[in-house]
Computed example of a mutant assay.
Amino acid sequence: MVFKRLLGAFGVGAPSVDTVLATPGVRPGETMRGEVRLKGGDFDADIEYIALGLVTRVEAEHGEGEQTGLMEFYRTEVSGPFRLGTGEERVLPFEFPVPWETPVTEVWNEPLHGMAMGVRTELAIAKAVDKGDLDAIRVNPLPSQDVVLQAFARLGFQFKGADLEVGSLYGVDQHLPFYQEIEFYPPPAYAHVVNEIELTFVASPAGLDIVLEADARGGHSGYSGDSFGRWRASHEEALHRDWAAEINGWLTALAQHGGHGGYGGHHDPYDHDSHHGGHDLGTVAAAGAAGVVGGMIAAEVIDEIGDMFEGEEEEED
């Protein structure tokens, strides 16, 4: 597949490239390691650069509905210019830090439905660029995130799925132009209180912001609609808190007082200027952190990253 891609970009007899990950499973804040393996083609090639990017599928809401596409949210250069000789083989080792806000794609060895993430290799020769290799990665939760997820499991909640929304969270030091929502179905004990709950983590070296959004049924208060809970803790503190009790307390307050329960904070944490403000992916990304590449990607590429998580890769003509 990789070789066929490079034929299309650079012509018959062009070099081939393959990226091998030493750490296909990582946590936010850890280091991704591996190597890029090059093999020269039928002619000497002047390589301009080789870059790696973390790519994921995101959703953006706007006035006309919703767009889904791929976004590169981290980028690093493996090599600058060099000449690759005819038939020459070269191995370029690399390592780079995985951003702390990187979304979780797998929990307890089970993939989160709706998540798709990979490392894309970009090779430039003579001003032509080929995004020629895409490798799936698994992102597991931090221990501080895992204890919160375990609390939901102990309370009987079941994973529904997850997605990434373009936008920002109010009052949170957020660096990526999107956030993750992990969705849960409630157990019978809470079914009269909420239809579903969405969990958002924003991690940093210092700790963890936790935001819960409940689609409330109303309970004794008769209130229905979205209600929010917010917590902040260091990674060490999070390990020692009784999150099942905290979540249960928030839901109890929600059942009694509806949107005015205020357990852990109840104001809407989402920045609606970017969450629902009519921006497309390219606009939001252009206003975000340097190095983030936004915009919609061709449909066949979206299909490819989806197939990638099923262990399949599409070949292009």
Score class of each variant (00 low, 15 high):
G65M: 02
P99N: 10
R120Q: 10
M115T: 10
R83E: 07
M117Y: 00
N109A: 05
L92N: 04
V98D: 07
S79Q: 06
T102L: 13
G63I: 08
M115S: 11
R57Y: 10
V119E: 01
G118E: 11
G114V: 01
G118A: 15
Y74T: 03
D46V: 10
W108P: 00
E72W: 08
E48V: 00
L92Q: 05
A128D: 11
A51Q: 12
K127H: 15
T105I: 03
D44A: 06
V107I: 13
V107C: 00
W100I: 05
K131S: 07
M71L: 15
E89Y: 14
K131G: 02
P97V: 04
E59D: 13
G63A: 12
R90A: 05
W100M: 09
M117S: 00
E72N: 11
V104Q: 11
T68Q: 14
V129W: 05
A60H: 06
A126E: 15
Y49W: 12
G63V: 09
W100E: 08
P81Y: 03
G53P: 00
M117T: 00
L112H: 07
G85E: 08
E122Y: 07
P99Q: 07
M71S: 09
L70Q: 12
R120A: 03
G65F: 04
I125C: 05
F94C: 01
L54N: 05
P81A: 14
G69R: 02
P103Y: 10
T56W: 11
G118D: 07
R120F: 00
E89K: 15
L92T: 03
E89F: 14
T105M: 06
L52Y: 07
E95R: 14
K131T: 06
H62G: 04
V55I: 03
V55L: 06
F96W: 03
F94R: 01
E64Q: 12
E77N: 02
G114S: 02
F96A: 04
W108N: 09
A116M: 02
P97K: 12
F82G: 05
T121Y: 14
E89L: 13
E122F: 05
E106A: 01
G63H: 08
A51K: 09
E66Y: 08
G53F: 01
I50R: 06
T102P: 12
T121Q: 13
W100K: 04
G69V: 00
E95M: 08
W108M: 05
G87E: 14
V98Y: 12
T102R: 13
